[in-house]
Simulated scan of single mutants.
Amino acid sequence: MRGFTLLELLVSLTLGLLLMTFLIGTLFATQQSNRQTQQLVQLQQNSQMLVSLFQAELPNLMFFAGRSLADVAHASHQLPPVLGDCVAEFDTGSFPVKGQPYLSLYAQLVQRHKHLNCVSQPKAGSELLQFKRIVGNSVLATQMRANRFYFETSAASSRFVNSSSAELTPDSRYWPLSHQVFYISEQKHAGDTIPVLMRKRLIRNAAGQSIMDTDSIMDGVERMHFEFGLDANLDGQVDYYLSTEQMQPEHWQQQKHRIINIKFYLLLRSLDEDFSYQNNQLYQMGQQWFKAPSDPFRRLLVSSSVAFSNTRL
């Protein structure tokens, strides 16, 4: 029986190598395509969750049960100081202080040595958003929850209380208070630095202490940008927009113009690197631009605009 000649063996080996190269290339391309698809799907899902979150939180800004911002700033309280309260340069934090400004909405560009005292490891150059508002419907004194704070409205006055406050009356209405701060923090994970969207919230802990609780909302949120629509002639229409960096104390205090709209821009980044991909795209975030640093991360930019449902100031 005749065996294979050397030439036939070489031809067979060559064909085998070509076939193996083709299969490896196909497998690599499939893995690359799957990685791309997974990252894009994850970015889309995260973007939908974030937009839903902001769309739920922002529309009722400025709502304090029919009281003006000036009325709220003069509301009384006998509450203990909040541990780790978020106090701005011209804002007293969770509750008013007599003779000092009290803001229901405030945003800030994070600088390396200048940002809210309550946030930890904020991403320099990012923005943070702080707001206080009434959330949900009013309750009776007997329905108040121990871990919340409330804004009491009565014919005589307004004040901030909790379920342990003295002189809670059955004829007053108690509106749940929300004080939140959203910011981006840079955190280490498995040797990598990951941008994380963080939130601080005013609560009472199990011991009854007033604190700003911290939780992470989502990994991979790289940048936030806000622009605020101001009503200059009080006709209920936006006359102009200012970015966070352009806003001045008088705008936040709304002495002349009302803030009635907010645009938000969120730039999401994949968590895993794809070294077959190089991102050098330019992303427009309102009045700002972000240039990707030619890195192996995919990104997705989402934006939306929210008109405040309650603009009585």
Results as ranks from 00 to 15, higher is better:
L168V: 00
S157Q: 12
R199C: 12
E152A: 12
M144T: 12
R148C: 09
V196H: 06
H179V: 15
N147S: 15
V161C: 10
Y174A: 12
W175H: 15
F160L: 15
R199T: 06
R173V: 02
H189M: 01
V161K: 03
R145Q: 15
H189G: 00
S164T: 10
A190R: 12
R173S: 12
S164V: 05
M144K: 13
T153M: 05
A146Q: 12
S172V: 09
S172F: 07
H179I: 14
S185Q: 04
Q187S: 01
T169N: 07
L197N: 09
T169W: 04
M144A: 11
D192L: 04
V181A: 01
R159F: 01
L168A: 05
S158I: 03
V181G: 04
S178M: 13
N162Y: 06
Y183F: 01
A166K: 08
V196K: 07
E167L: 04
F149V: 10
V196M: 05
F149I: 08
V196L: 06
F160R: 14
S158N: 13
T169A: 08
G191F: 13
Q187R: 00
S164F: 05
R148G: 09
S163A: 13
A146R: 13
L197T: 09
F182N: 03
S164Y: 05
F151C: 05
E152Q: 15
L177A: 03
N162H: 13
P176I: 13
S185G: 06
Y150A: 10
Y150I: 07
R148K: 15
T153F: 02
S163R: 11
A156S: 10
K200G: 13
S172P: 08
A156Q: 15
F149Y: 13
S178F: 05
A190P: 01
H179G: 08
S154G: 15
P170K: 07
S165R: 07
N147K: 13
P176W: 07
F160C: 14
Y183D: 00
S165T: 09
I194R: 00
S163Y: 06
S157E: 11
P195Y: 03
T153G: 08
K200W: 04
E167K: 04
T169H: 03
H179T: 15
V161F: 05
E186D: 00
V161D: 02
P195H: 05
P170E: 12
S157K: 10
S172G: 08
E167V: 02
H179Q: 14
R148S: 11
L168P: 02
V196I: 13
L197K: 07
R159Q: 11
R199G: 03
V196Q: 07
L197M: 10
I184S: 00
A190D: 12
A146Y: 10
R145L: 15
F182P: 02
I194M: 01
Q187W: 01
Y150P: 11
V181D: 07
A190Y: 09
G191W: 11
Y174Q: 13
Y183A: 01
E186P: 00
V161T: 06
N147E: 14
F182L: 06
W175Q: 04
L197V: 10
I194T: 03
S154P: 04
P176N: 12
S164A: 11
R148W: 06
F151D: 06
G191K: 14
P170T: 10
F182W: 08
N162I: 04
F149N: 10
N162K: 09
L177H: 02
N147L: 02
F182G: 04
